[in-house]
Design a protein around this nucleic acid. Sequence first.
DNA 1: TCGTTATTCAACCATTCGGTTGATTGTCGC
DNA 2: GCGACAATCAACCGAATGGTTGAATAACGA
Lengths: 113, 113
Amino acid sequence: MVATLDTTFAALADPTRRAILAMLLEDDMAVTDVAEPFDVSLAAISKHLTVLTAAGLITQEKRGRVKWCKLEPDAMRAASVWMQGFGQFEPVNLDAFERFLKAELSDTTDPQT
Amino acid sequence: MVATLDTTFAALADPTRRAILAMLLEDDMAVTDVAEPFDVSLAAISKHLTVLTAAGLITQEKRGRVKWCKLEPDAMRAASVWMQGFGQFEPVNLDAFERFLKAELSDTTDPQT
DNA sequence: TCGTTATTCAACCATTCGGTTGATTGTCGC
DNA sequence: GCGACAATCAACCGAATGGTTGAATAACGA
């Protein structure tokens, strides 16, 4: 819950966990539905979700017997800012600039796949 | 050398390695000098440098008996862009926007500590 | 040539990580 | 109440990680 850079980057280092986060961009999901597309056990996915929760990247809310997973993108900010402290040394980075502007202007619409 | 998101994030997950990268923001450094401020063996630092090199975050060039370490911030771009794909869901994020603009406009001067 | 310095290699160790399986807990529908 | 479903727990496994120490390699200085 403290969500240090350590836990954030470590959580993002696993491809399964990154895929889960990408899925949660679309919508909140139940644990079973998160696990469905992956070729591993439900218990394995449950562990991944624990790691993501510990890093603050998702929150989980239990309603009835179903536990809903919700993306918390703000937890990435510290890590993102840390990296940008290095990016400033890139020549100009127009790509990222345009992408940033587009994202800002389009507000909350049209998430790219 | 392929520098996937896996290797990039994994490399950044260790505090010693992040500290090394921050040191290399100042200037290129020899392995021994990189190791100096840390309370671990030189061999341990050598391993960390291998991880950073594998992730493409630094390059190493041997001149004489000294191996120079050079920061390669561009290796962070893919990971940074990936994260920004999530940041777009934050309300507005003026902070990051201003920081980005300032970095762009000030070109290559005045790196904040 | 010889000692010193720079760096890595090799073997080892404890811990963590991502995965499994089987049992367990809790809630829903009827 | 009971069977089915949602999810975690517990114990275990093999591989990877971060660390150590001591030996090896290589280049400098005199």
